[in-house]
Amino acid sequence: MSEKKAVGTRQYIATRVAQTIVVWFGIITLNFFIFRIMPGDPRGTLIAEHMPPEVIQAIAIRFGLDQPIATQFVLYIVNLFRGDLGESFSHYGQPVIETIFAFRFWNTVILMGTSILIALIVAIIMGVIAASRRDRAIDVGSTTVFLVAYSMPVFWLGLMILYYFGFILRVIPLAGTITRGIVHVNIFHYVADYLWHMTGPLVVLTLSFIGGFYLIMRDSVLDIFTQDYILAARAKGLKERAILFGHAMRNAMLPMVSVIAVNMPFLISGATITETVFSWSGLGLLTYNSVVANDWPVLQGIFLFLATVAVLSNFVADILYLYLDPRIRY
């Protein structure tokens, strides 16, 4: 790389760093105010009936709710830079970091990551096969099945699975991430139990994801089939499988990269409805409960985390482009 190009790249990176910092500061400011314009007041959750006025006042003081909004904002910023996200209102006094990351974050990442991964693998394979057999039974059949799955309301699908597979057939558990009350003999026992509990929500989420992935992959492969290099591959006498998976699928994956990127936030934000139906304690459920309870510190923590991941991801992606695509130079 010439010195001129290196200087341009360094300037670009410096500009992106500055932009990222500005954006992040914008986010943390917005993050404070968006929850305070929601209807409702956390005192509605914190204060029980029959509480004397003195206790009501003490609770407000404990959580800083008696302070003017500007003072609360300053405290929020100061505490944020001390690594303190505050205390949960609805988990009375529990540190927000613990509320989010102790186990709920991992429950969501494992469930959502697995379902997105399975949905991607199945969608890619079935998309390629369906495209290669356009208008045949496997194409029409798989398109119909995945479209139906894609169209079904998640809560309905979840309840049906819960009823038929959980209650009637008793092959999946009705609630939770583990069997309640048992002592797991070792880590393998725990993992097996966890995966068994994950079956129901995993099926629901995979079915809900797969339709979109499948349609994009199928259309992308159909488009690739019109390209000259596919014709050339066939002219060279390559086997159909090699053409499909060696040429068509690899090139059709490019649009899928964007789809995967778009779905990445789900990895963290979770799936509220599915988590509720199966009592899966993840971040989606935590977000919902926090909205209902006006648990501002927890909501701020979740959204700050999400926004930070998004901002950093974009920054890293932009920097990576510099090295991955030699055509991009500044």
Partner: peptide, 13 residues
Amino acid sequence: RIDVVIGQDARIL
């Protein structure tokens, strides 16, 4: 034992 079962449908089941 106190179990967390979030939905009313799931609790009845």
